[in-house]
Design a protein around this nucleic acid. Sequence first.
DNA 1: TTGTGTTATGTTATAATATAACATAAATGA
DNA 2: TCATTTATGTTATATTATAACATAACACAA
Lengths: 164, 164
Amino acid sequence: MTKVMSFNPHDHEACTASALEKADAYCQKHALKFTPVRRQVLEILCSDHKALGAYEILKRLGPLGFKSQPPVVYRALEFLVAHRFVHKIEKLNAYVACMHHDTSHVPAFLICRNCETVAEAPNKEPSDLVAQIAKTNAFTVEKTVYEAEGLCVNCKEDMADDAR
Amino acid sequence: MTKVMSFNPHDHEACTASALEKADAYCQKHALKFTPVRRQVLEILCSDHKALGAYEILKRLGPLGFKSQPPVVYRALEFLVAHRFVHKIEKLNAYVACMHHDTSHVPAFLICRNCETVAEAPNKEPSDLVAQIAKTNAFTVEKTVYEAEGLCVNCKEDMADDAR
DNA sequence: TTGTGTTATGTTATAATATAACATAAATGA
DNA sequence: TCATTTATGTTATATTATAACATAACACAA
């Protein structure tokens, strides 16, 4: 299994730059407008692997010279989510940059309840649930939300250390 | 595969009565207080297989002689969710009565975007995601949210009919 | 049965999340 | 260039959820 990137040290500047470049290229290819607000919101979300609430993003837009009314950020998020540059973490009412935009995947998240880091799990296949349902014709799945809350390796180790 | 009850005709009165009885018995056994508000909220949620928002439940409590401030319903929901009589559908910020309280299960939901019926899928096994993670020690899963949005059989058929 | 701690409920206020509705501007393209 | 569409600005408000503090009911030992 691939390592879950967010919980491991990695060159984060490069990871952000690459996400933005990919978004740029994708928008160009599909004639989508990657406007300044949209770009900036994605950049803010890339800035770490935590999920950010809409109002937190809004707060960070202000100092960067953007208008700070809620619809501004909700619209940018709507665009970014629609084109899958960003996923919404329903459990947290918060948003994270997508880490696998170029590969087809079933969005699935691991949310550390301690450090609040959100990692996108490398699930390429739908879960049992979807497979089961698809077999019968009881339900046609259109969108899925798979989120797991728990403890990431780092926090678990920290807690073990503290206990000593 | 077991039929997904919510999308199929069934004796709904019996289904409600049974859920309440089971909750009653469980509370008795575990020395939990199944107070009037708690019972009433569960009854409201059992009344159909739609997910209801907290404020919708609140509205229905009023005429039944209960006090109608938000904390009243949120506290009742907190109790019911803690003891798994009710699940929260994160995607909808809404609540549904649990249909499988007596059997161990991984809560997983099928949400029809048309009629808003919520069915609890009969998943006994965790999805790929959880299984994958458990194998590595990258993450310790504590709680999961698996929700699929789409179209239930009935709505799909209706739409096909309309198209004719 | 009274006192003491605990759990549940009542009540007011407000925080946090999200959208409606309408106006203006910018870009696109016949 | 005009018309159309798409994006942004702005005000107001809807929806969901919790903090904080007060009172009541309950449980059970002294």
